[in-house]
Design a protein around this nucleic acid. Structure first.
Lengths: 155, 155
DNA sequence: ATTCTTGCAAAACCTTTGCATACTG
DNA sequence: CAGTATGCAAAGGTTTTGCAAGAAT
């Protein structure tokens, strides 16, 4: 998806926000790989290393803006910081989180359509999104088993 | 469920931990209403108000202990703090989170059994738990609609 | 021009930790 | 008694905010 930049630019304009170099840089980087779960600090470090002129506060503010604009989703995998991923409307998926190594895998499917319909009806709750996290032990960690507990290095 | 105290006590003993007044008070409070999603600070304030002798650090440490013992689950609803709920093994449920008022509703059902089976097979991932959060607008907020945006007071 | 945005540093939060004291098994 | 657990205050880490300077419409 390469029109993410265009979409974002249009959406921000629509909301009355300005298009700045920093916002472009952030979105451009996210657009390079949609399957990321970056924290604000990680994103900041990457952009800095690329030589972009940007501050950490701006990264936080921009990501929050993007959440508001519906361009990215804010996720919490339980490692104490928020992570962001591009909200790819036509790419519903879920997350498998390994309790051992902390890696996050994507499950590119959406099994929740009927569940949602039934909830909207039963609870009179208008659903705008969902987030399913499944915890467990990934294939690699199971193989490397025997590895006692304690060799967990989250994300 | 009133044997939560007993269960917890036994489990802690099993793990070699001691049974203290503070741990008892915390679990006793959680046992009064299993449908809570308290943050450490909230729990601390409640116990303090009740006149219990306890410190915030102890609340944090005890909750972490309980997570380890599998007695409570640590949840993140995106309001910047961790929340804890009693892990009621035979009461699987999901959470509906209102984007407007921040309230969290419980959906007392587990629709994910087959989904999990298919994941375990397809991904060779050993599932130990899951957490499904569904975001949207609750019934009350829809009724009180017209209420522009901005009247959101999370949790 | 006006309004929005940025960057820095400071502040605000939530959570963890060090250490002396107090308690449990 | 030995080994844990507690409470306080300090430290740590993440996120937010105030404000003057800089950009964008």
């Amino acid at each position: 998806m390469d029109d993410l930049l265009a979409r974002a630019r249009e959406k921000l304009a629509q909301l009355g926000y300005k298009w700045t170099d920093q916002r472009r840089d952030i979105i451009a980087y996210l657009a390079e790989d949609l399957n990321q779960h970056l924290s604000a600090e990680e994103l900041y470090a990457i952009l800095k290393e690329r030589g972009e002129q940007i501050g950490l506060a701006t990264v936080y503010r921009t990501l929050e803006l993007m959440v508001e604009a519906g361009i990215v989703h804010k996720l919490q995998f339980g490692d104490g910081r928020s992570r962001y991923e591009v909200a790819d409307a036509d790419h519903h998926h879920h997350h498998l989180i390994c309790n051992r190594c902390g890696q996050v895998f994507e499950v590119p499917m959406d099994w929740l359509e009927e569940l949602e319909q039934s909830i909207e009806k039963d609870y009179d709750f208008e659903i705008t999104g969902h987030h399913l996290k499944i915890y467990g032990i990934c294939s690699a960690c199971k193989k490397a088993a025997g590895g006692e507990k304690g060799d967990e290095k989250p994300l």
